[in-house]
Deep mutational scan, measured.
Amino acid sequence: MIQEPALPPGWEMKYTSEGVRYFVDHNTRTTTFKDPRPGFESGTKQGSPGAYDR
């Protein structure tokens, strides 16, 4: 089984109701579709995929 590298501290991976993966940075309280791990580009969309909830 291939294991992906861990997200940076304070980051979480979530999915929209449509199943699109996005990332929550709890450090800055922002969201992005761009994977924060080096070498992982998950898309070019920018903006908030939804309300920030902790």
Score class of each variant (00 low, 15 high):
Met1Gly: 04
Met1Glu: 09
Met1Val: 08
Met1Leu: 10
Met1Gln: 15
Met1Thr: 08
Ile2Asp: 03
Ile2Lys: 15
Ile2Phe: 08
Ile2Glu: 09
Gln3Cys: 15
Gln3Leu: 10
Gln3Phe: 15
Gln3Glu: 15
Gln3Pro: 10
Gln3Lys: 15
Glu4Phe: 04
Glu4Thr: 05
Pro5His: 14
Pro5Arg: 15
Pro5Cys: 14
Pro5Gly: 15
Pro5Val: 15
Pro5Thr: 14
Pro5Asn: 15
Pro5Leu: 14
Ala6Val: 13
Ala6Gln: 14
Ala6Ser: 14
Ala6Glu: 14
Leu7Lys: 01
Leu7Phe: 13
Leu7Ala: 03
Leu7Val: 04
Leu7His: 01
Leu7Tyr: 10
Pro8Met: 06
Pro8Leu: 05
Pro8Gly: 05
Pro8Gln: 04
Pro8Tyr: 02
Pro8Cys: 02
Pro9Phe: 14
Pro9Asn: 15
Pro9Tyr: 07
Pro9Val: 14
Pro9Ser: 13
Gly10Ala: 04
Gly10Ser: 06
Gly10Ile: 00
Gly10Asp: 08
Trp11Ser: 01
Trp11Gly: 01
Trp11Glu: 02
Trp11Met: 03
Trp11Gln: 02
Trp11Tyr: 05
Glu12Leu: 03
Glu12Gly: 04
Glu12Met: 08
Glu12Val: 08
Glu12Cys: 05
Glu12Ile: 02
Glu12Thr: 05
Met13Cys: 13
Met13Phe: 09
Met13Asp: 08
Met13Tyr: 07
Met13Pro: 04
Met13Gly: 06
Lys14Ile: 07
Lys14Pro: 00
Lys14Gly: 04
Lys14His: 08
Lys14Asn: 04
Lys14Ser: 06
Lys14Phe: 13
Lys14Arg: 11
Tyr15Lys: 12
Tyr15Asp: 02
Tyr15Pro: 01
Tyr15Gln: 13
Tyr15His: 04
Tyr15Phe: 09
Tyr15Arg: 12
Tyr15Ser: 08
Thr16Ala: 01
Thr16Met: 03
Thr16Val: 01
Thr16Leu: 05
Thr16Trp: 00
Thr16Asp: 08
Thr16Cys: 04
Thr16Ile: 02
Thr16Glu: 01
Thr16Lys: 01
Thr16Asn: 07
Thr16Pro: 00
Thr16His: 02
Ser17Asp: 15
Ser17Arg: 07
Ser17Glu: 14
Ser17Gly: 11
Glu18Phe: 05
Glu18Gln: 12
Glu18Arg: 05
Glu18Thr: 09
Glu18Gly: 08
Glu18Ile: 04
Gly19Pro: 00
Gly19Val: 00
Gly19Thr: 02
Gly19Ile: 00
Gly19Lys: 11
Gly19Gln: 05
Gly19His: 05
Val20Ser: 09
Val20Cys: 08
Val20Lys: 09
Val20Arg: 08
Val20His: 09
Val20Met: 10
Val20Leu: 09
Arg21Cys: 04
Arg21Thr: 12
Arg21Phe: 04
Arg21Gln: 08
Arg21Glu: 06
Arg21Ala: 10
Arg21Asp: 07
Arg21Leu: 09
Tyr22Lys: 01
Tyr22His: 02
Tyr22Ile: 02
Phe23Lys: 01
Phe23Asp: 01
Phe23His: 00
Phe23Pro: 01
Phe23Arg: 00
Phe23Val: 00
Phe23Glu: 00
Phe23Gly: 01
Val24Trp: 03
Val24Pro: 00
Val24Gln: 08
Val24His: 03
Val24Cys: 04
Val24Met: 06
Val24Asn: 03
Asp25Arg: 00
Asp25Thr: 00
Asp25His: 02
Asp25Tyr: 01
Asp25Leu: 00
Asp25Ser: 01
His26Ser: 05
His26Glu: 03
His26Pro: 02
His26Arg: 04
His26Met: 03
His26Asp: 02
His26Ile: 05
His26Tyr: 03
His26Leu: 04
Asn27Lys: 06
Asn27His: 06
Asn27Phe: 07
Asn27Tyr: 03
Asn27Ser: 06
Thr28Arg: 03
Thr28Val: 02
Thr28Ala: 09
Arg29Lys: 10
Arg29Glu: 07
Arg29Asn: 05
Arg29Cys: 06
Arg29Ile: 02
Thr30Ser: 11
Thr30Val: 07
Thr30Gln: 06
Thr30Gly: 03
Thr30Cys: 09
Thr30Glu: 05
Thr30Asn: 09
Thr30Ile: 10
Thr31His: 01
Thr31Lys: 03
Thr31Met: 03
Thr31Arg: 02
Thr31Ile: 01
Thr31Gln: 03
Thr31Leu: 02
Thr31Tyr: 01
Thr31Ala: 04
Thr31Cys: 07
Thr32Met: 01
Thr32Leu: 00
Thr32Ile: 01
Thr32His: 05
Thr32Val: 02
Thr32Tyr: 01
Phe33His: 04
Phe33Trp: 08
Phe33Cys: 02
Phe33Glu: 03
Phe33Tyr: 12
Phe33Ala: 03
Phe33Leu: 04
Lys34Asp: 07
Lys34Asn: 03
Lys34Glu: 10
Lys34His: 09
Lys34Met: 15
Lys34Pro: 00
Asp35Pro: 04
Asp35Gln: 04
Asp35Asn: 04
Pro36Cys: 00
Pro36Ile: 02
Pro36Val: 01
Pro36Met: 01
Arg37Ala: 04
Arg37His: 03
Arg37Cys: 06
Arg37Ser: 04
Arg37Ile: 06
Arg37Thr: 09
Arg37Pro: 06
Pro38Asn: 09
Pro38Met: 12
Gly39Ser: 14
Gly39Leu: 13
Gly39Met: 09
Gly39Cys: 13
Gly39Gln: 14
Gly39Thr: 15
Gly39Ala: 14
Gly39Phe: 12
Gly39Tyr: 09
Phe40Thr: 14
Phe40Trp: 09
Phe40Met: 13
Phe40Arg: 11
Phe40Ser: 12
Phe40Lys: 12
Glu41Met: 10
Glu41Leu: 10
Glu41Val: 10
Glu41Phe: 05
Glu41Thr: 08
Ser42Ala: 13
Ser42Leu: 09
Ser42Trp: 09
Ser42Arg: 11
Gly43Tyr: 09
Gly43Lys: 11
Gly43Thr: 12
Gly43Cys: 07
Gly43Trp: 07
Gly43His: 12
Thr44Asp: 11
Thr44Val: 12
Thr44Lys: 15
Thr44Cys: 13
Thr44Ala: 11
Thr44Gly: 13
Lys45Pro: 10
Lys45Arg: 10
Lys45His: 06
Lys45Ser: 13
Lys45Cys: 11
Lys45Gly: 10
Lys45Gln: 12
Lys45Leu: 10
Gln46Tyr: 08
Gln46Thr: 09
Gln46Asn: 15
Gln46Ser: 10
Gln46Trp: 07
Gln46His: 11
Gln46Cys: 10
Gln46Asp: 13
Gln46Ile: 11
Gly47Asn: 06
Gly47Phe: 06
Gly47Gln: 12
Gly47Ser: 11
Gly47Trp: 06
Gly47Met: 13
Gly47Pro: 13
Ser48Tyr: 08
Ser48Phe: 08
Ser48Arg: 13
Ser48Gln: 12
Ser48Thr: 15
Ser48Ala: 11
Pro49Phe: 08
Pro49Ala: 04
Pro49Val: 11
Pro49His: 14
Pro49Ile: 07
Pro49Asp: 14
Pro49Arg: 09
Gly50Lys: 13
Gly50Tyr: 04
Gly50Met: 11
Gly50Pro: 11
Gly50His: 07
Gly50Arg: 11
Ala51Pro: 08
Ala51Ser: 12
Ala51Lys: 13
Ala51Asn: 06
Ala51Arg: 11
Tyr52Gln: 13
Tyr52Asp: 15
Tyr52Arg: 13
Tyr52Glu: 14
Tyr52Lys: 10
Tyr52Ile: 14
Tyr52Leu: 12
Tyr52Gly: 14
Tyr52Met: 14
Tyr52Trp: 08
Asp53Cys: 07
Asp53Gly: 07
Asp53Glu: 14
Asp53Ile: 05
Asp53Pro: 05
Asp53Thr: 09
Asp53Ser: 10
Asp53Met: 13
Asp53Leu: 07
Asp53Ala: 06
Arg54Asn: 01
Arg54Phe: 15
Arg54Glu: 10
